[in-house]
Amino acid sequence: MSENQIKNLEAEFEAKISRDEKIEPKDWMPEKYRQTHIRQISQHAHSEIVGMLPEGNWITRAPSLRRKVALLAKVQDEAGHGLYLYSACETLGISRDELYEQLHTGKAKYSSIFNYPTLTWADMGAIGWLVDGAAIINQVPLCNTSYGPYARAMVRVCKEESFHQRQGFEIMMKLAQGTPEQKEMAQDALNRWWWPSLMMLGPTDDASVHTEQSMKWKLKRKTNDELRQQFIDQTVPQADLIGLTIPDFDLKWNEERGHYDFGPINWDEFWQVVKGHGPCNKERLAARKGAWERGEWVRDAAMAYAEKQADRKEKQVV
């Protein structure tokens, strides 16, 4: 292709995005667009899959049958989200096995939040309320992102996520209105999950390397700091409502800005976790790799069986 032809394609591509038309798998796209989307969609898929672990940790110990069933359904939804997202990612010309390989070798990341441990039942409430809440703030704009398969996957994901968030809030509310022991459990979970949830929305704007390009491609509509502010503004009244205290002494309504002011985030901790040294990074990755390695003979068996069946069918036809 001549340089001129590429320039034309690029211009046509940019025009499409500015007209809010979707880019589809067979359309021409700049290599960087393809790579950025593979990175983001796969990170998103990996987050769903790794995210099954901290919650899966409490399935066998859920305190009532109703909660156990709801938690199972939720974790199953997450596995489903992983499937949609891997499929969306595969439309960009990469296989699910390659994506797993990237996760298992640490080349691909997943959301830092899932490197925190779930220590009490209240963590199931905190994750639903805060972690899914922050995820929704991140993800709702993605329902309109420029890459069609990703946008369509996100429409389905977001519907289920907001259901999970309500469920999580309900768990917290029940605890906060329960016995003193239950309320203490809820407050402790909020204390441990609050700051990591704020970190989920990514580094501050001046430290975020991908923001500018992602805004151009409509992968992002608002900056990390704007999204974080939105999350805080929306969550503080919810905490007030159920009588829990946000663990931030600097948190205060700012009449002039029309937003909450909040204290400094510990970015050292964020980078420590992102670089693989959080409380559960090793366990999470080991669990995923272990499942994959232990499952190899099962996947081989399924392949061998499918081949034998295909052979038999062929012979029958002949």
Binding site: I49, M52, L53, G56, I59, T60, L65, R66, K68, V69, L72, A73, V75, Q76, A79, G80, G82, L83, Y86, A287, G290, A291, W292, R294, G295, E296, V298, R299
Partner: peptide, 29 residues
């Protein structure tokens, strides 16, 4: 089956086993 959640040999079997667990616990209720 609930113990297996997140540890299956593939995402599809993971979903299926969780799904079966969910059905059984629904019946129990």
């Amino acid at each position: 089956l609930g113990e297996l959640c997140g540890h299956g040999p593939s995402l599809e079997t993971d979903i299926a086993l969780t799904n079966i667990s969910l059905d059984l616990l629904g019946q129990v209720r």
